[in-house]
Amino acid sequence: MNLLELSCETQHGANPLAASTVNQLMGSLPGWNIRGIELTKTFPFADFHDTMAFVNALAWIAHREDHHPDMSVHYNRVVVNFSTHDAGGLTLNDFICAAKTEALLARP
């Protein structure tokens, strides 16, 4: 499944993904971790300018997908946490947005 080709869908009343599905999807997201009911990763940057450029790009993706992460923004790093609060855990939306976040920093 190519997560970058998918778009988020409304998750009201949805159930979180099964652990087996979560484990399968984690293989496509290097460096991401599960912490409780969140999909999380820390992104390091050289300086504040690069940090804020990433935050703004991620905000645009979150707005477009209508699925918003919790972020902790620092001078040279951003901690990104995705979770579907309506489902009480992780849904496909979290993995779609994590993949699109990861693609922001993809190098050819």
Rank of each mutant, 00 (worst) to 15 (best):
A19R: 08
F54M: 01
H68V: 12
M26N: 06
N33E: 14
L17V: 09
T51D: 03
I34Y: 00
T42G: 03
N15V: 10
T51Q: 04
G27S: 13
F45L: 09
A53N: 11
M26C: 10
T40Y: 04
R64S: 13
T51G: 03
H63N: 14
H67D: 03
Q24F: 12
D50P: 01
K41M: 04
G36I: 03
S20Q: 12
D47N: 15
G36P: 01
D50C: 05
H68A: 06
S28P: 02
H49T: 15
A57F: 10
N33L: 11
P30Y: 10
I34S: 02
G31P: 06
N56V: 07
Q24L: 15
T51C: 06
A62T: 02
H68L: 10
H63C: 07
F43H: 06
T51K: 02
V55P: 01
P44T: 11
L58C: 04
N15T: 15
P16C: 04
S28D: 13
G31F: 09
A46M: 09
E65N: 09
I34W: 00
F45N: 02
P30D: 12
N15A: 14
M26L: 15
G27C: 12
L25M: 13
F54C: 00
P44E: 14
L25V: 07
A57T: 00
A62M: 07
D47F: 12
D50A: 15
A18K: 14
A53F: 00
L39Q: 02
N56F: 12
P16S: 08
D47A: 08
T42Q: 14
P44W: 11
N56C: 08
M52Q: 11
M26H: 08
G27M: 15
L29A: 08
P16N: 09
G13P: 02
N15H: 09
W60H: 15
F45H: 05
V22M: 10
H67G: 06
L29T: 01
L25H: 09
A18T: 07
N23A: 15
N56Y: 13
D66M: 12
G31W: 13
K41A: 02
A18M: 06
S20I: 12
V55H: 03
T40M: 12
W32C: 02
N33Y: 02
A18N: 05
S28K: 06
P69E: 07
I37C: 07
R35W: 05
D50L: 08
N33P: 01
A14N: 10
G31E: 02
D66Y: 08
N33M: 09
L58E: 00
Q24R: 11
L39R: 00
H63P: 00
N15C: 06
A46P: 04
R64Y: 11
G36A: 08
A18G: 01
F45Y: 04
A53L: 09
W32S: 05
P69T: 13
T40I: 11
A59D: 05
I37K: 09
M52C: 05
D66N: 15
A14W: 00
H68P: 01
L29S: 02
A59C: 11
R64I: 10
G27R: 15
E65A: 10
A19G: 02
P30Q: 11
E38D: 08
Q24H: 09
L58W: 00
V22S: 00
F43N: 01
P69Y: 03
A18I: 07
P44C: 08
P30C: 10
